[in-house]
């Protein structure tokens, strides 16, 4: 009795140590992205909220776009909207905290993280980070589990809940197939009439952003959103006020996969912990068998 209880506790201790030890080790995310990867710099102080980008995006992705004249209707700004399965990008309006702007309009879409949570989370690897920075979804692999939606720190992927068969995960794909894989700018960048969106290499965009902040310190806050957020994103934002008050989430600078991948990799490093647990239990079982045979 006491013997087996002791061994039971021993086994439990081993298991706990395995689990606790797991969080100590560090993540080693594979980085496939190129140093020349592309991105878009969004200057929210220049955006006028014309929503031409929304229209262009829908046309580009074959989504029902409606009449272009309807996009000048500013009443949609009364409620906050989110990108979903009908619109991969949306523009929201926020009250301005400085006198230069009447209001601030902010375009929202997938940020195309450098260490994407969706890529790490996806059970079948349907999400991939491309060399040029795009994070894209592969319809042929997806099983529709929606773990990407749980994982995404920016709450971007949307799901076609109303479709019975072949529902898709819908999110900005950085126009990967049609444009950016060929080096062309995305549809929204091309549509922007005020050059609020700048397409280019990410490192150059970061230089441009800091340059603008340096030249107009009263226009911008000294923060390029996306430079370090969740380990860096391909889409970068400039703003005239705190990004939390422009509808951006409080995400911190640690990549989201850093929370789970170290645990996963510690448990499955050469399968040592599972095999060790197997051996331990096998040993206990064998010992128990020996002693129970002795009794008989």
């Amino acid at each position: 009795m006491s013997q087996s209880r002791r061994s039971f506790l021993k086994a439990m201790g081993t298991v706990s140590l395995t689990a606790v030890g797991a969080k100590e080790s560090k993540a080693t995310p594979k980085n496939v992205v190129s140093d020349d990867r592309l991105g878009v710099l969004v200057d929210t102080t220049v955006c006028i909220g014309c929503r031409q980008c929304e229209y262009a995006c829908k046309v580009e992705h074959g989504l029902p776009a409606g009449n272009i004249d309807d996009y000048s209707d500013r009443s949609v700004f009364e409620t906050m909207r989110r990108p979903d399965h009908t619109a991969l990008t949306v523009v929201n309006e926020y009250p301005a905290e400085n006198s230069r702007q009447q209001s601030v309009t902010v375009k929202v879409q997938c940020m195309h993280c450098d260490h994407p949570a969706c890529v790490s989370a996806c059970i079948v690897g349907a999400f991939t980070k491309q060399e040029n920075g795009a994070v894209i979804w592969d319809e042929g692999r997806c099983i529709g589990c929606r773990y990407c939606m749980v994982a995404c720190p920016f709450q971007i992927p949307a799901f076609e809940f109303d479709k019975t068969i072949q529902p898709r995960i819908m999110k900005c794909d950085f126009c990967y197939e049609t444009r950016t894989s060929k080096g062309l700018p995305t549809a929204c960048v091309e549509a922007c009439p005020t050059e609020a969106l700048t397409f280019g290499k990410r490192y150059e965009l970061i230089q441009i952003a800091h340059e603008r902040i340096r030249k107009n310190p009263e226009r911008y806050i000294d923060h390029v959103f996306g430079e370090h957020e969740v380990g860096g994103t391909s889409w970068l934002y400039l703003g005239g006020q705190e990004f939390l008050r422009l509808g951006f989430p409080d995400v911190g600078t640690n990549p989201a996969p850093g929370a789970t991948e170290p645990i996963q990799h510690a448990i499955f490093k050469f399968f040592v912990p599972p095999v060790a647990l197997y051996a331990l239990l096998g040993g206990i079982m064998w010992l128990g068998k020996q002693s129970s045979e002795e009794e008989e």
Binding site: V119, S120, A121, C122, I123, V124, G125, R141, C142, I143, G144, C145, R146, Y147, F159, E160, F161, K163, Q166, P167, P257, T260, E261, I263, Q264, I267, F268
Partner: peptide, 26 residues
């Protein structure tokens, strides 16, 4: 019941992403 594309469940063992916690659970 919960999977949107339940008929693709066989993708899990053959396309599994070893970084995914869900893959290990599955």
């Amino acid at each position: 019941f919960d999977l949107g594309r339940y008929y693709n469940i066989w993708h899990v063992p053959i396309m599994g992403n070893s970084n995914s916690v869900l893959f290990e659970v599955g």
